[in-house]
Write a protein that binds this DNA or RNA. Structure first.
Lengths: 109, 109
DNA sequence: TAACTATATAATGATCTGATTATATAATCA
DNA sequence: TGATTATATAATCAGATCATTATATAGTTA
């Protein structure tokens, strides 16, 4: 029981960071590769990579390698409260659609 | 919009700590005074006091002074996802009932 | 094979955080 | 009023966290 609280606190801590919460909200719309997330968040690739590693270690996302790209998607079926949280975060859909992903460096083409 | 994500991340960060998440779960059962929380969590009074200050600053709890005691209760009506989270934390009700609150120092009598 | 692209890892450093110890404030009680 | 109880605040510190810079790995393409 105590262990479960600890585990939940760890998950909430992962969500309690602006960058990671935004990433999770983006992934709530659709699967994305690292370079898309980098483009969207206007931060460095290693920064995103480190955050993805934490999210993966926490079991919140899964990865799928395709060619030279690594696609991340949500893995939160077993944590209904995470879905509930993401449903309450302002959607990033419009922002995603408006942005021509990878327009600068033409990644993921 | 971005501001709202920031705000949500701040709230989730508050919940992303074992001590505070347990406090919130206790308060989800009923209003409690500081000394009861101290007794339950087996930690120091200043430690709880600091956490309560953070929770209050984050708008997650409200306080009510009665005599020399300060009672805290949840203030999450406007944050439905917080209630959703707390509903998924293992209940502390039995633990609360089992424990004779303040049995050692007879506080809150 | 060499150059290029996408991603991961490592090292570093500034900042933040949680807990402790000591002290202050404020209400109650004898 | 003085002692006691409940709570808050301040100072300190070790450890965690986030971002950056530099470098490594691995797949792709010319």
């Amino acid at each position: 029981m105590t262990i479960e609280i600890e585990r939940m606190a760890d998950i909430l801590k992962l969500l309690g960071d602006r960058t990671r919460l935004t990433i999770m909200t983006l992934l709530h719309e659709r699967e994305l590769c690292v370079c898309e997330i980098v483009d969207f968040l206007k931060t460095s690739q290693p920064n995103i990579s480190q955050h993805m590693r934490k999210l993966k270690a926490g079991g919140l996302v899964t990865e799928a390698k395709r060619g030279q790209w690594v696609y991340y998607s949500l893995n939160t079926q077993d944590k209904p409260y995470v879905g509930e949280i993401l449903r309450h975060v302002p959607s990033q859909r419009k922002a995603i659609e408006q942005q021509t992903i990878c327009e600068d460096n033409n990644c993921c083409i």
